[in-house]
Design a protein around this nucleic acid. Sequence first.
DNA 1: AAGATAGGCAACCGCATTTTA
DNA 2: GTAAAATGCGGTTGCCTATCT
Length: 286
Amino acid sequence: MRRSPCCSKEGLNKGAWTALEDKILTEYINIHGEGKWRHLPKRAGLKRCGKSCRLRWLNYLRPDIKRGNITNDEEALIIRLHSLLGNRWSLIAGRLPGRTDNEIKNYWNTNIGRKLQNGGAGSTLNTNIQQDQNVKDQEWHYDKGSCLVQTKATTWTNKVTVTNEISRHNEGIIIKSNVIGDNKMKGFLLSPSKESNNDPVLDFMADLEMDGNFFSELIEMDLPESSCQENKILEDNGNPIMVDKVYLSPKSSSDTIHYPWGDSWYDTNFDFLPVTIFMESGFDWL
DNA sequence: AAGATAGGCAACCGCATTTTA
DNA sequence: GTAAAATGCGGTTGCCTATCT
């Protein structure tokens, strides 16, 4: 037995919601709770698609929605999360209590995205991240493809090799030792297989299941001081280059790393600073 | 003052994934 | 196990308001 269609689109209201519709929806959900969106419009007496009701509730009517402008801290966090996750707005929103994915997406498109576009990534953003970019005469060795991406909001499916040893790299991504543990990252390296023609991001995704907690810990984990330079990485001569992902790199020149995809070796015995160094405050809930 | 343009945001649309019969 | 509905998500649209000319 199959389900019946979610709703007939005939005779349904579209466009802006009226105060009366909001009231009806709010009262219905207050009594019956969220969910069952398919049946909600009919039962509540709304001439709306269930999908529309859900959206209205989640983006506007929910009591825990935070109103008002995005704060500097929130903006900094959005930027940081976006550099890690890309346009995973729902996931980013999950880290900003009271903010919706739609709101963050709109904010990004109308504010941050524009800043980045106009001034170059990281160059005009008045954020804590930028302040921390002023560090350091570091020697950077880098290559494309070292980044973290999540395919879905709660589950990561990543292709990685996890090892407690220094590993050869031809098989693909390598992570050395205790990636997630006591919130310390000791020698965390990701790289694409140099033989692979695949997108390194995709390369990175398979084989290892990580739940939402992994991301929580990932956010909290130690990262190199300059990895948060908004899409900017310094070449050895000090000139910045623009990349489209955040790279994890060694902290100091004494820890010079030749990344695996360069057919070389690496030593992961170096320190990372906490990611929260880039945010001044307000992220205790992370 | 009026029309044009730009910006902001709520809502819609279509696709992917998950759930369920 | 399969197929279709339900749900979730990101991209896009279009309306409203503010600002500019």
